Simulated assay, not measured.
Amino acid sequence: MEFEEDSRATNYTTLTAGPDFRHELEIRRSRFITVLRRSPDEETARSLVADLRREFHDARHHCSAFVIGPDRMIQRSSDDGEPSGTAGIPMLEALIKRETAPGATDLSDVSAVVVRYFGGILLGAGGLVRAYSESVSTALNLAPLVHRRRLRLCAVEVPHADAGRLENELRGAGYVMAETAYEARHAILRVALRDQPEAIAEARARVASLTAGNAELRPERTEWIDVSS
């Protein structure tokens, strides 16, 4: 198998898999309820707006923004009745300018909806911009995030009796393990590696050493995988 360098993104940051994250702020008597959802596609992002319209049906505004894709090519926002440019755009900027590490603005696959209950005090255009931006930024400060990397899955076939030992040794060596399949005659372990020839070669040598040359690591497809760092 040949490996070619390309310009596609190889990593980004997103919300951890799990339930929506919620956080509420009160600003001059108005309630701003921010809900974040991990959204790998536009359908998932738009479903968050629909879900919250049903749940908070009596709220005046359900403003939204989302950014999707490893390259963050899909970016949308909505003011939902607030003065133009005072809600959706500040929310979107809070997403795309979020630093997940010093100098790293790589947050993606995230949708944000801010539900507003008007408190009777007008905030003005500047006040609305600050309120919606702060609502999303504060929620992101508290929400659980995870790194995602495009990795090469490689498989190795071993006897059932050896699968647990080999998996533990590879994990101990710092490798990211994917799924293990137990078939009739053998187990198939999958390791997620950097999609580079030298990383594959190093892992092949490690597997050969751990199995006394009785097993070979075979590159398969690439896949996006959540990793801790």
Rank of each mutant, 00 (worst) to 15 (best):
E223L: 08
T34A: 10
D195Q: 05
L128F: 08
S111C: 13
R218F: 05
L52W: 14
A9D: 06
E55I: 05
D6G: 02
A208I: 00
I74R: 10
Y132R: 02
F56E: 14
A181Q: 07
P70D: 01
Y12F: 15
S30C: 12
V227G: 07
P19C: 01
N214W: 02
E183S: 12
A101C: 00
S135L: 10
D71G: 12
I200G: 00
E198A: 13
E167I: 00
N214Q: 14
E216F: 03
I200L: 15
D58M: 04
S229Y: 07
G164Y: 01
L25T: 13
S137Q: 14
F3Q: 13
R98Y: 14
E202P: 00
Y175F: 15
M1N: 06
D195V: 03
L153Y: 10
N214T: 14
N11L: 07
H147Q: 11
P70K: 01
S39V: 06
L36T: 05
R8D: 14
T16C: 14
A205R: 09
W224M: 09
R22M: 12
T86M: 09
P144R: 00
R165M: 08
R152E: 03
L128I: 04
S228V: 09
T16Q: 15
I74A: 00
A203C: 05
R76A: 13
E82K: 13
R28V: 11
A187K: 02
R185H: 09
A184H: 15
A9S: 12
G88E: 08
C154A: 13
D79G: 02
G81S: 11
I89F: 08
D226M: 03
P197V: 08
A212W: 03
V110Y: 05
H147L: 09
L153Q: 08
H160G: 10
E24W: 01
N141F: 08
P197M: 07
T86G: 10
M177F: 10
A9Q: 03
N168L: 09
F32D: 02
R22G: 07
A50T: 13
R72K: 05
I74C: 01
L166S: 12
R221Q: 12
A104T: 11
I121G: 00
R185T: 14
E26A: 02
P40N: 11
A9C: 06
L122F: 02
R194S: 12
Q75V: 08
Y182D: 10
R150L: 15
T180Y: 03
H61S: 13
E216V: 10
E93W: 02
P83Y: 08
V136C: 04
A203K: 04
L193S: 07
E183T: 09
A155E: 12
